[in-house]
């Protein structure tokens, strides 16, 4: 689907992505996890051709992404970005219709197909309930759903999500994740999503990519890669990873460490060592 070949990127002199290679296959749900500033968003920007790598290349289909026109890329890749601020009072419906921009000729009106796609997406994302409201009057979560709906109406084989659920409540997070997962399964679509919540990522993702210092620290099927040693290596936190039957996947559990010497674990350790002696 989309192949990253030995790309490197630096803002000024500080390298963000170093010699990273990866192959994304069609019909899979990928999650990118990693600490703040490890290059997740930059990697997405490189994938969608918004940034130019200093070396290496990104190949979409058979083309180098930098040789493609923005319009052609927009028919292949859509993005829900972290920044969903909108300064102008467009209505929600107008914003979602903007997702059809790459398909509509310069002076043409939206076709009946465009209108139908937009209506369907708005219904499925629940944004139809505030279709005529102005985006500047919406709450952060509602605006994020509106921008999400815009990306879906772009109807692309590849969907990139950059912390797209950061401001959404859990019910809408689940609703939208189910929606895109269904697209992945039924229409062979690909999703590449940056997450902060490891457990949410684990439930919906086929594959996890852990990033650290601009490199891929570990990647693979969620079942294989979800383990406490990798989480500790990448995030420097201790955790316990175990299979959870309700979610049907492995989940990581954390605990407060503000007073580690008096934690239950260390008390047990002390007691057992006393008994042994």
């Amino acid at each position: 689907m989309i192949v990253v070949k030995e790309i490197s990127f630096a803002y000024g002199f500080s390298p963000v992505i170093e010699n990273l290679s990866f192959e994304f296959e069609a019909g899979r749900f990928y999650s990118i996890l990693g600490p703040n500033g490890c290059g997740k968003t930059t990697l997405l920007d490189l994938l969608i051709g918004h940034l130019k790598p200093q070396s290496g290349k990104v190949v979409l289909g058979n083309n180098n992404i930098l040789s493609m026109s923005k319009r052609d890329i927009a028919k292949q890749i859509s993005l829900v970005s972290q920044n969903y601020n909108i300064n102008f009072p467009f209505t929600v419906k107008e914003v979602v219709m903007m997702g059809r921009h790459p398909y509509i000729g310069r002076f043409a009106q939206p076709s009946s197909e465009d209108v139908e796609i937009v209506n369907r997406v708005m219904e499925r994302t629940g944004t139809d309930r505030f279709a005529e409201r102005k985006v500047t009057d919406l709450s952060g979560g509602e605006r994020q759903r509106c921008v999400f709906a815009r990306a879906l109406s772009q109807d692309t084989p590849l969907l990139c999500l950059d912390e797209a659920f950061a401001n959404m409540d859990i019910s809408h997070t689940i609703r939208l994740l189910d929606l895109v997962k269904k697209e992945v399964r039924e229409r062979n679509r690909t999703v590449i999503s940056v997450f902060h919540d490891i457990n949410i990522a684990a439930i919906w993702s086929d594959l996890l990519i852990f990033m650290k210092d601009g490199k891929v620290a570990a990647s693979g099927e969620t079942e294989d890669i979800m383990c406490s040693s990798i989480i500790e290596d990448v995030f420097h936190v201790k955790s316990e990873v175990m299979y959870n039957s309700y979610s049907g996947t492995k989940q990581a559990h954390f605990r407060a460490t503000y007073n580690d010497s008096s934690s239950i674990e260390s008390k047990i350790r002390k007691r057992t060592s006393r008994q042994e002696s």
């Binding site: 923005k70 909108i86 300064n87 102008f88 772009q154």
Partner: peptide, 20 residues
């Protein structure tokens, strides 16, 4: 119409197919 998209931010406009 490109201006509509640009007024929403450069990254969004770019991902919607505008050569910003």
């Amino acid at each position: 119409r490109d201006l509509n998209l640009i007024s929403l931010g450069e990254r969004s406009a770019s991902s919607l197919g505008v050569d910003t």
